[in-house]
Simulated scan of single mutants.
Amino acid sequence: MLSPRLSLSRHGPSFSRIVAGMWRLADWNLSLAERIRLIEQCIELGVTTFDHADIYGDYQCQQLFGAALQQAPALKQQIQLVSKCGIKLTSSHRLEHRIKHYDTSAAHILASTERTLAELQVETLDLLLIHRPDPLMDYDEMARAFETLRAAGKVRHFGVSNFTPLQFEALNSRIELVTNQVEFSPLQLSALQDGQFDTLQRHGVAPMIWSALGGGLLFRHNDTSPLQAVLAQLAAQYGSSVASLVYAWIMQLPCRPLPLTGSGRIEVIRDAVAACSLSLERQDWYRILQAACGHEVA
């Protein structure tokens, strides 16, 4: 089974339905050869879209990934690259940052993108996201920065991450956005309840989903958890792993979510891909929602 492809929006890019999240790449302690092999194995599974951010791995993950692309440049033509900017961490790699803060100024967006392109060893990003909403963000200034990057051929498409529906609408009214990357899982349902998914469906925009498995909390042993019990029962019923079941539950939403994986183990990514061919009966989908909420629907 290969991950299918999906257009993020009416005029947006076509990405693999499962996206390989690289935020823990620095923690996986992979050699250069192992990093190259991981990218190759993802491609073999049809997972061709890779998610990054400038801050991941204390500003080191993009360089690690870029070293793999430099060593195996043919891979560049087979993948799509996503990155984010807008957060500034205190770090030994950024001594000028005196406090963790957000920066969505045009100057930072442009400078961060240039650095990201150099670190990833590519000339163009397929998608650039603003990582988190900034209380000081100027939507017109952000849109102008995006237009500058597009005109220079450095970024093809733009989106946001962790934006509220109103914040998404405000920037989308100035420049077309192709996604909002948000947290969603059976342990974090707010995007289902606060109008986030409704807003995106209205615009024909597919969300990208981070922490789809609850950061691993779904798998911590807890015999008293009704949610874990329901997931185990349904996984056995459908002949799937619990992880595949959860990914399938998420992808069944009509806003067409693209889940991100967060593991360097190819078997975990394979579980996510297997979910692309799994469809839950409506009542089973609601069994998971009921267990996640702790009560039946009204």
Results as ranks from 00 to 15, higher is better:
Ala236Asn: 08
Gln167Ile: 00
Asn162Val: 10
Phe163Asn: 01
Gly216Met: 04
Glu96Tyr: 10
Gln228Phe: 04
Thr104Asp: 13
Cys293Ser: 06
Pro257Gln: 13
Met251Lys: 05
Asp271Ile: 08
Pro133Glu: 08
Ser185Gly: 12
Met22His: 06
Ala292Pro: 02
Asp103Val: 12
Ile55Tyr: 04
Pro135Leu: 07
Pro133Lys: 05
Gly153Trp: 13
Gly294Ser: 05
Thr113Tyr: 05
Leu110Gly: 03
Thr90Tyr: 03
Glu114Gln: 14
Leu200His: 05
Thr224Ala: 04
Arg256Gln: 15
Val19Tyr: 05
Gln71Leu: 03
Asp140Cys: 02
Thr124Ser: 12
Ser244Trp: 05
Gln71Phe: 06
Phe184Lys: 02
Asp103Phe: 09
Pro133Phe: 14
His131Met: 09
Ala106Asp: 09
Thr148Val: 14
Leu192Trp: 09
Ile36Trp: 01
Leu69Asn: 07
Ser277Ile: 05
Val273Thr: 09
Cys276Gly: 05
Glu34Arg: 05
Phe219Gly: 04
Ser241Glu: 02
Gln201Val: 01
Val230Asp: 01
Asn162His: 06
Ile250Asp: 00
Thr48Val: 06
His52Cys: 01
Pro165Asp: 12
Gln283Ala: 15
Gln290His: 15
Ile269Leu: 12
Glu141Asn: 02
Ser31Thr: 14
Arg287Phe: 11
Phe219Val: 12
Glu34Trp: 09
Ser91His: 07
Leu120Thr: 10
Asp284Asn: 12
Val242Ile: 15
Leu289Lys: 00
Ala298Cys: 10
Glu119Ser: 09
Gln71His: 14
Gly46Pro: 08
Leu81Val: 06
Val82Asn: 05
Gly239His: 04
Pro226Gln: 07
Phe197Tyr: 08
Ser105Gly: 02
Pro186Lys: 10
Ser279Asn: 11
Ile55Trp: 00
Ser31Cys: 02
Leu95Asp: 11
Gln237His: 15
Ala143Asp: 04
Phe50Leu: 09
Ala275Thr: 12
Phe184Leu: 14
Thr124Arg: 15
Ile269Met: 07
Leu289Glu: 10
Leu69Met: 10
Ser277Met: 13
Leu217Ala: 15
His108Ala: 04
Pro226Met: 06
Lys84Gly: 11
Thr113Gln: 09
Gln252Asn: 04
Gln62Trp: 03
Gly214Phe: 14
Ala298Thr: 07
Pro133Ala: 13
Cys255Arg: 02
Leu125Pro: 10
Ala74Leu: 09
Gln196His: 15
Ile250Tyr: 03
Ala292Glu: 01
Gly294Phe: 08
Leu189Gly: 01
Gly204Cys: 13
Ala229His: 13
Ser91Cys: 11
Asp138Thr: 03
Gln283Cys: 12
Thr179Pro: 11
Val246Phe: 08
Pro4Gly: 04
Gln62Phe: 06
Val273Asp: 07
Arg35Val: 00
Tyr286Glu: 13
Gly153Glu: 10
Met1Gln: 11
Ala243Asn: 01
Glu281Ala: 15
Pro259Ala: 08
Leu136His: 14
Asp223Val: 12
Ala143Thr: 01
Leu110Thr: 08
Ile39Glu: 03
Val47Gly: 02
Leu81Arg: 01
Arg94Phe: 07
Ser240Tyr: 00
Thr124Asp: 00
Asn180Lys: 01
Glu281Phe: 04
Arg270Pro: 00
Ala151Val: 06
Val160Glu: 04
Met22Lys: 02
Gly57His: 08
Val246His: 12
Thr104Glu: 10
Gly21Tyr: 00
Ala33Gly: 09
Leu245Ala: 10
Thr48Asp: 03
His11Asn: 15
Val19Met: 08
Phe50Ala: 09
Ser92Asn: 09
